[in-house]
Every structure is written in C-alpha cells, then in structure tokens.
Design a protein around this nucleic acid. Structure first.
Length: 411
DNA sequence: AAAGATGTCAACCGCTAGATA
DNA sequence: GTATCTAGCGGTTGACATCTT
C-alpha cells in the first residue's frame, strides 16, 4: 500500500519512556481521552509517534492493569487457553482481566513455554513430543478428537465473544433509542456462530440490526459441517502466524484453529457423522446448541453434553443462563457474568473440581522439574497416565472455556 | 570482583483488516 | 475500485537485570 511507517518522521523519539513522558501521556488521556492516536502526541506535547503512545498506554499506563507475578490460577488459564487458541494473545488476554496480551505473551515465552518444553511437552501442540510412538493404539486419535472438540469449543468461544459484543452494542443502541425497554430476547450461541459465519469479520463493531431470535438454519449449517467432508486444515496453522487468524471463524465455516490430523482423510472419518460430533438443536424457546459425542470407546461412560450459553439480553445487563454437563460435573450459573461469579462457579459450583485441578495442567504447574513424565513406571504406564491426564487436561480446558468471561475488557 | 551467560520484558516492527475519502 | 489512514495483532529485538563461573 505504500504507506510510510508512522515512526519514520525525524525527531520522533524511540526507546524507553521516561517518567516525564508517562506523566504527559497520562495527564493528556485522563483529561481528553485518547481520541486519535496519531494526533495525540503533538497535542500532548510528546515527541513520539501515535503508535508508540498507544502501546505505552495499553501495555503500561492504563489504570486497569495488574502488574507483577502471575498467580497459579493465571498460569493455568494461560496454558489452557493457549492449548485452545494458540498464540492468539489478545484472545487469551480477554480471559485474564487486567493482563495485557504483551505481558501474557512475554510470560508464555519466558516461563511457561520453557516449563512445558522441559517436561517434554510440545508447547505448540501441548502433547508430549514422542506422541508419534503411541499413534498405533488409537489412543492418540482419541486425544486428537478430544483436541478437535476443544477446538470446536474455541470456535464457540469466539462466537460467544462476538455475541457478547453484539449484545453489548445492541443494548447500548437500545438504551439510546428506547430508554426504558425491558424486552428480552434469547439468542443461541449456535445462531451466533452461524451469524458470524455469514457476516464479514468485524461487522459486529457496527451491529445495529438485531439478529433474529433464533436461526434453525445455523444448526443445519452445523450439521452440514459435521456431516460433510471436513475442510482439511494445514497442520500448525493454529499456532498463530502473522495476522489472519485473529478473526477466527468469521467468514467461512472453516475450523479456525483446528490442527487435527489423521492418517485417514476427514471425509472417511466423517462417514458416520454420529461418530464424530453431533449438534442437536431446536429452534424452540431454549434455542441451545448441544454438542454430543457418541461411540467413543475411550469415552465410555462419558456422555458429554455442553449446553451452549443462552444469552438473555435485557435491561442492558448481560444476564446469562449457563449449564454444562460433564461426567461428575454439573454447573449452572444464572445472572450477570462477573469474574467473581465465574470463578465461584468454576471452583465451587457443583463441579467435582478435583479432577480438573489435578489434570495435566496441574501437573505442569506443580511440577518441580522433569519428574512427571520420566519418573517411575513403565512406558505403557506413562502412556496411559498421559491419556488419563490428557483427558482431564482437555476437560479442564473445556471447563475453563465454558466458564469464560464474556465480559472482558476487550468487549 | 569481573566477565560471560542467561533471563526478563518494554518497546518496536511489520503485517492485516476495516473504515473512509 | 483504489489509495490512504487507523487500530490492532503477533513476532522480534535489545537494553537491562540477574545468575553463574
């Protein structure tokens, strides 16, 4: 496009910010807001480019930033979300209130990534590096499917996030135009998924027209997706890369972060859609999409039913009714989503939380070194331990995602 | 105590998407 | 339809701090 970088202008300062500069920027924004970043430096009397100012503000000066050591909870969240979302730091950051994407990225690169690598776990795939060794027994396939399910959750998560944003915007414009309206509408996450699939990315920024309350078509789409040949995805695509991925599922029906790879083509695996994931939904009042996994030997006894959140919008308050059912796990949450309530539901709820807490991630977090995969027991024990842990790991991730705050700074 | 190695993290760079003229 | 502007994202760099020898 032939645009010169904004910092190319001579006379603009680079490098570390001085306290004086911070003070100027802070004072200006507190008084005037940031408005246009490009125009800000001259108005604020700073010899910096707008981009530099924006970065300084968002990563350091913003008042709602928490600095300092990451808590165990935060570490766990990062690892789990990274397993789901890859290097999409801004998306991960939306689940860690008061942490910036830059900070999370740095923490991942300097701490967590190394810890995983040290344990022989590939920080990109979150699988042991010798995973190929066990591919013949079918267990890795199970893990991969589990992974894919989680990636589906990633898509849902994004749809959910978009929906929350839309919801907020709608409620704002609603308040604008109908200052006292108590109408409420119920939207299914599945219809959100479909709407985001149909709409160009970023449309939500200016979403003014209300979506239809339900979209049976969306469920057809989902069924079509699961039933027809799955678009194959390049392996490693989920690990980020410059740009592009940030917009996730919008625009088409491609699984945004899927790195699922089998030796068989996906359309073979999908011959019987029921063996994969079946989306059952109704266009009735509940309007919930349901993910069901059947016919999995390794999942014996595991009837997983994730009831996607129903977004009940009304009175400008994002009231959400939410249920999720895992084996030995039921959780429900009614009312506005707040970090506290989510945490409470995640930790206290009706969840048999021990399994979650003792999952793979906890192994990482509690690991004092290299013992987890190298100590004691034979190879097969280690493998079965891994898959047991891995199951918990992904369950834990799903749990986390299901309790993900839609009310994050980003929205 | 000094030198080199390693770790940390703020800031920069380049790219992209969306908006606008 | 094209060019440009703007904001945001993820990868990378480099200065500084800390650790090790």
């Amino acid at each position: 496009m032939g645009r010169s970088p904004c910092c190319d202008k001579v006379g603009l300062k680079k490098g570390p910010w001085t306290p004086e500069e911070d003070q100027k920027l802070l004072a200006y924004i507190e008084e005037n807001g940031h408005g246009s970043w490009r125009a800000l430096p001259s108005k604020a009397g700073l010899q910096r480019c707008g981009k530099s100012c924006r970065l300084r503000w968002t990563n350091y000066l913003r008042p709602d930033i928490k600095r300092g050591k990451f808590s165990l909870q935060e570490e766990q969240t990062i690892i789990q979300l990274h397993a789901l979302l890859g290097n999409r730091w801004s998306a991960i950051a939306t689940h860690l209130p008061k942490r910036t994407d830059n900070e999370i990225k740095n923490y991942w690169n300097t701490h967590l990534k190394k810890r995983l690598a040290k344990m022989g776990i590939d920080p990109v795939t979150h699988k042991p590096k010798n995973d190929a060794l066990v591919s013949s027994d079918g267990q890795s396939k199970s893990a991969a499917k589990l992974s894919h399910l989680a990636q589906w959750e990633s898509a849902r998560l994004e749809a959910e996030a978009r929906l929350a944003r839309e919801s907020k915007l709608r409620s704002q414009s609603f308040q604008h135009h109908h200052s006292s309206s108590n109408s409420s509408q119920v939207y299914s996450a599945a219809s959100a998924l479909a709407s985001t699939s149909a709409a160009p990315p970023g449309l939500v920024k200016k979403a003014t027209a209300p979506l239809p309350p339900s979209s049976p078509q969306s469920l057809d789409t989902l069924k079509a997706w699961t039933g027809s040949s799955w678009p194959s995805t390049k392996s490693g695509e989920g690990s980020g890369g410059a740009g592009g991925s940030a917009n996730g599922i919008a625009g088409d029906l491609e699984s945004p972060t899927s790195t699922l790879t089998f030796s068989e083509p996906m359309n073979v695996l999908c011959e019987n859609p029921k063996q994969m994931i079946e989306f059952v939904g109704s266009s009735g009042s509940s309007d919930s999409g349901m993910i069901k996994e059947e016919g999995e030997q390794e999942w014996k006894g595991l009837e997983s039913s994730i009831t996607l959140p129903e977004f009940k919008e009304g009175m400008g308050n994002n009231a959400v009714s939410f249920t999720s059912t895992f084996p030995e796990m039921t959780m429900s949450l009614e009312g506005p989503w707040t970090p506290e309530s989510l945490r409470a539901s995640s930790v206290h709820g009706n969840v048999e939380n021990n399994d979650m807490e003792e999952g793979f991630t906890s192994l990482l977090l509690n690991s004092s070194g290299d013992q987890s995969l190298s100590d004691g027991g034979g190879e097969s024990d280690k493998r079965s331990d891994y898959y047991e842990d891995n199951k918990n790991y992904w369950n834990s991730i799903l749990n986390l995602v299901n309790s993900s705050p839609s009310e994050s700074p980003m929205f």
